[in-house]
């Protein structure tokens, strides 16, 4: 078991160091002449007004909530799919019920216009 994950650990270190090393080498090679105008936020020709970190639409929270529900549903279904040949018909029925309940949730969100993008 550990044998299989050793490579992933090594790859995680290598994969993290590779972009960092690239940025490090670029830092040594590149010119550095910053000035306030150059470092200002990009805008279409005029100066930026205020921060970009503002309040935003609740729509994104709704989408994120629905996403979390369905993503967790899929994660639960993966072990079910792997054990599918060993489980009895009752477990399949339960999985179907699980999906149907969540489908009901999707229909509810749909009817409440949570999926409409205004």
């Amino acid at each position: 078991m550990l044998d299989q994950y050793g490579l992933i650990g090594a790859l995680a270190i290598v994969a993290f160091l590779f972009p960092f090393a690239g940025v490090g080498i670029a830092w040594m090679l590149r010119p550095k002449h910053p000035n306030p105008v150059k470092k200002s936020t990009y805008e279409c020709g005029i100066e930026t007004i205020g921060d970009a970190w503002v309040q935003f639409r609740a729509q994104y929270y709704l989408i994120a909530l629905i996403f979390v529900i369905f993503d967790i549903e899929v994660i639960f279904l993966f072990p079910f799919a792997v054990a599918f040949e060993q489980v009895g018909p009752f477990a399949v029925l339960e999985a179907i019920l699980f999906v149907v309940i969540l489908a009901g949730g999707l229909i509810y969100a749909w009817k409440k216009d949570a999926l409409e993008w205004q």
Binding site: A15, V23, L29, R30, P36, K39
Partner: peptide, 28 residues
């Protein structure tokens, strides 16, 4: 590699610099 690299004044420096690294990391 030889282009100047600008971090804007208002940016969140740590997150700003970590994001491209994570993007490559996830694909590798």
């Amino acid at each position: 590699f030889t282009k100047e690299d600008i971090t804007p004044t208002g940016a969140d420096r740590v997150t700003f610099n970590l994001a491209p690294t994570l993007a490559v990391f996830s694909i590798v």
